[in-house]
Amino acid sequence: MVSPARHNEGQRQRVRAAWLFLAPMLIVLALVALWPLLRTFYFSFTNASLVDLHGREGIGLGNYLAPVDGVWTGLFADPQWWRALWNTLVFALASVFLETVLGVLFALVLNVTFRGRSLMRAALLVPWAIPTVVSAKMWSWMLNDQFGIVNDGLMRLRMISEPVAWLADPTLSLWAIILVDVWKTTPFVALLVLAALQMLPKDCYDAAKVDGIPAWKVFFHVTLPLIRPALAVAVIFRFLDAMRMFDLAYVMTGSSDATMTVSVFARRQLVDFQDVGYGSAASTLLFLVIGLLTLLYLRAMRPDLSGARR
């Protein structure tokens, strides 16, 4: 037997080893996450520029909101910033809502045993695996106003009479991007929901069948409440991802005001205009907005992220 004293010594050794094992990961994460994040916060209170990061001066809240010669300047007074934030919220809410509905539909279909189910399941992974930039390009081509197959198909079906400029029309372009995001990320939601569906107890469904309860009632009163925890997790993951969307908007519509998200706005200030201070302020605000919304969501939904449940 191991004596208590030796056991204690062993435990201490183990804890020491644990910290030693954690150290490399913690150092790397500090270097690529914590430190850069703090620097971004700091830059947001300066007028640093990309060409000369060192020649900066503190300007207080100048990048956020400050009066200059009697006129309010800074992000809070910048209509383009508010437009970008609005676009980001519309994009995130609409795409997550559509992905969730469609994802549940896919999962319900895949939960039925039918011939060709494994083929369908494989197809589900196709949009997920395709790089976002590639999906953006493929859809830009399909949505091309003159030579696009989407316009061709809709005109053949007589649903539109003349070609639509999906990506150039400012009232449509954000929705075109939402469409592509829904295509690309519905599989992720579907896989999570499917995993939850496959863990549901079969007996209550058999009981419902015997009682002759219609399928839609069973879905809303039995299935939906049971998969709610999995849905809550899928929704928060998708929402956080959608709020930082960059690639689709950048590749499909460049820096058009109609689709500019906060990430596109911030990078444009940082890199194209070399204004590190202003760009960092935008990044900091996005970070705070996402943090706040996440806390509200976690409060309201209490999704189980702990891993206690399988």
Binding site: W35, P36, T40, F43, L53
Partner: peptide, 25 residues
């Protein structure tokens, strides 16, 4: 520690862009 690691995977990349640019340079 576990929760902080999870939080890192969730925050927006653009929030570290300028800081990381400085590190890399």
């Amino acid at each position: 520690l576990l929760v902080s690691i999870l939080a890192v995977s969730m925050f927006p990349q653009v929030a570290v862009l300028s800081g990381l640019f400085e590190v890399i340079r």
